[in-house]
Amino acid sequence: MQTITNSSSKCLGTVIFFHGSGDSGTGIRQWLKMELGEEFSFPHLNVVLPTAPARPYTPAGGALSNVWFDRNDISQNVPETESVKTMCENLEPLITDIVEKGVPKKNIILGGFSMGGCLAMHMAYRFHPDVAGCFVLSGFLNTGSSVYDAVQAAKIPVPPLFYAHGKDDELVHYDWGVNTYEQLKKLGVKGEFHSFDNLSHSLYRKELDLVKKWITQQIPE
């Protein structure tokens, strides 16, 4: 699993940014740079952009694709597959490596775009509830997701959540994002939701500026 890293000279923490389906760490890095006009980086934080392994992907007719997990359909109304849990477990060495290099879990933020945002929620709320925060850009959870069960059963305060979604998203419908955020909020997750008019399934400079500000609030320089 290739990992692209933007390194800070004075590292206080790490942001892990998971790309969407069919993309790569290199691809999302270039896309972020194109939208921002500069690297998605922080003076005091490292940014890690892993690449999902290629695997058969059911919505693509079983063709190989760089996706974090398989799913039966791009829809809220299908069951989660076991591959979600498997991928979270496969990413444990990445978290362990960061911690062993001196970054405490409380200074790690997990997030991503689309499928990557979904993965980030599973990672943060099911497996690593002691991280600093979670951000989701144009993502969603399946109805009855195991993430909801994990949040409800949590014994410690769960990470805060930043959520952003375009109102004209043609792939991950806006109401899926709203429903996901509202369900997590009802279960006690503290966070903020940002919606954007005329934004389809894409990244947008304004939302990236907002998420960068939010990340810096969670782990101040």
Rank of each mutant, 00 (worst) to 15 (best):
L94A: 05
Q30M: 10
Q183K: 15
M34K: 14
P160N: 10
T3Y: 12
W31V: 08
P93G: 11
G144Y: 05
Y174S: 10
E38R: 15
V172I: 14
S114N: 06
L119P: 05
L49C: 06
E170D: 13
Q152T: 07
L137I: 14
P50C: 03
M34Y: 12
S24A: 11
V172H: 00
L171E: 08
K106N: 14
F18L: 11
P50S: 06
Q183L: 12
T14N: 11
A52S: 09
G188R: 11
S75W: 00
S202W: 13
V103G: 06
S41Y: 04
T14L: 02
S200F: 03
E192Y: 06
T26I: 15
L49F: 13
H194K: 14
V67P: 00
V84H: 02
K186H: 07
Q217E: 15
P53F: 01
I74H: 05
M123E: 06
D175Q: 10
I16W: 03
C11R: 15
S202D: 15
G27Q: 05
M115V: 04
N179A: 14
V178P: 03
I109W: 13
S65H: 09
E100S: 14
H165R: 03
H19E: 09
G37M: 02
H201W: 03
H128R: 15
A120Y: 01
M34A: 14
F127V: 09
F40T: 01
Q30I: 01
T81Q: 15
Q218H: 03
Y204L: 12
G22F: 04
T86V: 11
A60P: 00
E80V: 07
H19D: 09
L12Y: 10
A154Q: 02
I219N: 03
N6H: 12
M34N: 10
E100R: 15
G37L: 03
S24N: 05
P79A: 05
H194A: 05
P93T: 13
L171R: 04
P53Y: 04
N142A: 10
N66M: 10
Y204G: 11
K212V: 01
T81R: 13
E192Q: 12
S200Y: 02
A120D: 08
H44G: 08
A132S: 12
G144E: 02
L203S: 03
L45P: 04
P159K: 09
L199I: 11
Q217C: 04
G191N: 00
T5V: 15
D209I: 14
V147S: 12
L141M: 09
G139T: 02
C118E: 12
V211G: 00
T96G: 00
K213I: 12
L171P: 05
T51M: 09
I74R: 01
I4N: 07
S83I: 07
G144P: 03
D23I: 08
N90T: 06
W176R: 02
A164T: 03
K190R: 12
I215Q: 06
R205H: 09
M87W: 03
D209P: 04
S114C: 07
Q2F: 10
L12Q: 13
C118Y: 08
L12M: 11
T26R: 15
L137S: 04
M1E: 14
K185N: 09
K101G: 08
I108S: 00
D97Y: 07
G22L: 00
I109Y: 10
N46Q: 06
L137C: 07
E182N: 12
F196E: 07
K85I: 15
M121R: 09
K185A: 10
H122P: 01
